[in-house]
C-alpha cells in the first residue's frame, strides 16, 4: 500500500478550493496552510504557457524530514503517509529546513504541522478533503501500488512529472502535464 496523488494541471484552474477545504476540515489556523497553489507563466505576449499546480507535502519515500527529526515526532504511517505527532514535536524546525518542498510550518501552538493526506478521512474510505471538493476534478488519490487504481491508470496513460526530482526524495505526488 502506497498512497499518492495524481493532479491534472491541464484541468486545474487555481481556484484554491483545495486550500480552504483543508483549512476548514483540519482546523488549520487562519494565516497558515497545508496546501497552496502555484502559477508558472512562460513566454512573451501573446505566445504564452501557464501551468497551475496545487502543492502540498509530497509524502516522499525517502524522507529527510523524518531522518532529521530529533524526537521521532515526524514519522511514517501505513500507506507511506508522513505525519507529525504534535505532543512529541519540540518545534525545532529541522524538518522544515530539510524539506525540499517547503511543505511544513510551525503551528501557533508550537509544533510543526503539515498535510496528513486527511488520514482520518482515508480511514473512513473517503478522499482527502482537497480531492473531495475540487470543482474541476483535477485531483486523484489512491494506492500507487495497485495497478488497477485510478491513480496508477492515470500515470500509465498520461505524461507526468514530479517536483524537484533532483532532491532524490521520491515524491508521491505526480502532476499530469
Amino acid at each position: 500500500m502506497r498512497y499518492g496523488m495524481v493532479i491534472d494541471t491541464i484541468k486545474c484552474v487555481g481556484c484554491t478550493d483545495c486550500v480552504v477545504a483543508c483549512q476548514t476540515e483540519n482546523n488549520v489556523p487562519l494565516g497558515y496552510a497545508r496546501d497552496w497553489v502555484v502559477e508558472a507563466v512562460v513566454g512573451t505576449y501573446p505566445e504564452l504557457h501557464l501551468e497551475i499546480r496545487t502543492e502540498r507535502c509530497n509524502h516522499c519515500i525517502d524522507t529527510p524530514c523524518v531522518r532529521t527529526c530529533p524526537t521521532g515526532a515526524s514519522h511514517i504511517i501505513e500507506g507511506g503517509i508522513v505525519k507529525v505527532t504534535a505532543n512529541e514535536c519540540i518545534g525545532c524546525g529541522a524538518c522544515i529546513e530539510s524539506c525540499p518542498y517547503d511543505a511544513r510550518y510551525v503551528h501557533p501552538n508550537g509544533y510543526v504541522d503539515k498535510c496528513t493526506f486527511c488520514d482520518h478521512r482515508v480511514a473512513n474510505g473517503q478522499d482527502p478533503a482537497c480531492v473531495s471538493v475540487c470543482p474541476t476534478y483535477c485531483m486523484h488519490f489512491g494506492d500507487l501500488d495497485d495497478p488497477n487504481s485510478e491513480v496508477s491508470k492515470l500515470l500509465a496513460t498520461r505524461n507526468s512529472k514530479v517536483l524537484a526530482p533532483e532532491a532524490g526524495t521520491k515524491p508521491q505526488i505526480f502532476y499530469l502535464i
Binding site: 481556484c15 486550500v19 480552504v20 477545504a21 476548514t24 473531495s132 471538493v133
Partner: peptide, 24 residues
C-alpha cells in the same frame, strides 16, 4: 465547522467552490 456540497444538487454536484467552502 465546514460546508460540503450536496450530491443531489445539479448546481454543485456535491462540490462547492472556494467561496462556498469558505462560507463559514
Amino acid at each position: 465547522w465546514k460546508i460540503i456540497g450536496h450530491d443531489d444538487d445539479p448546481n454543485s454536484n456535491g462540490r462547492f467552490c472556494p467561496r462556498g467552502t469558505g462560507g463559514v
